[in-house]
Amino acid sequence: MPSITRQPFRTAVLVLVWGWLLFLVLAPNLLVVGASVMTRDPGTFISLPLNLDAYRQLFDALYLEVFLHSLYMAAMTTLVCLLIGYPFAWALSKLGKQRQLLLIFFLIVPFWTNSLVRTYALKMLLATNGLINSALMGLGWIDEPVQMLYTEGAVIIGLVYLLLPFMILPLYSVFDDLRQELLLASHDLGAGRFATFIHVIVPLTLPGVLAGVMLVLLPAMGLFFVPDILGGSRNLLVGNVIKNQFLDARNWPFGAAASIVLTITMAILMLAHRVSKQRIGEEGTG
């Protein structure tokens, strides 16, 4: 199909694209891998000799605790998103097509709105003398303000608020593909509502669940500005650690090692997603 006359154009396009990706994607990533096995250097950021100190440092009691806490908050965020998002996507898929599109539109409007501004809006609600406390006291349900801001809960609420659409959209797409006849067939073959749910609905929506988990869990470990605004100094994410190590402590090897751990987590999740898709016979596109 490509005609001979367009060869120079083709070459130019390929050189441009390859150049961009090699310089701004491949090279930086290799650099991070390299940095993670080098030694911290105050002047040039990194220097020889090669060693695995950075990785060892990840398992220091201090950092291990931060990591586990971050993982815990990310996992809770993912769980909450899943618990809210699964029935949401299901209910959404049962509506008329026109209404579905409208509701999807209103689901992604917040996604197009500055996430800092939205986090800030939550802060207004959660603050000690904020709107929720005022309202509860006004109703006489509580006598004195409840501390909500700067807690683990506030960070999780913030992350859920920012990431919920990323859980719902992949779930909605699998529910939308779930053909009604499959459920009818299951009932027809004698399965009750619960058995149908376990044996038909769950396996068929699993790829959506995993895609959602992937899209929520990883950002939930990286969005450092959420704890900065809502969480105070004790509820840090891996993202905060990486940011501090790179920008403040200037410890590149350690920051790089932490980010590689994140990347490996991503790879494992992507693999799981691929496998689950292949199991229901879809082409595993990753």
């Binding site: 694209v17 390859w18 990706l21 310089f23 701004l24 994607v25 491949l26 090279a27 930086p28 990533n29 650099l31 991070v32 940095a35 950021f45 992937m214 990883l218 950002p219 470990m221 990286g222 450092f224 993202g239 990486i242 940011k243 790179f246 590149w252 920051g255 790089a256 980010s259 994140l262 990347t263 991503m266 992507m270 990753g286």
Partner: peptide, 23 residues
């Protein structure tokens, strides 16, 4: 090429951020 684009899209923003800063 496809794979690189996919990695950019899927990898956590912070990973992209530090790799570019390093570069």
């Amino acid at each position: 090429l496809n794979g690189m684009l996919f990695v950019v899209m899927m990898s956590p923003e912070i990973v992209l951020a530090i790799s570019l800063l390093a570069l």
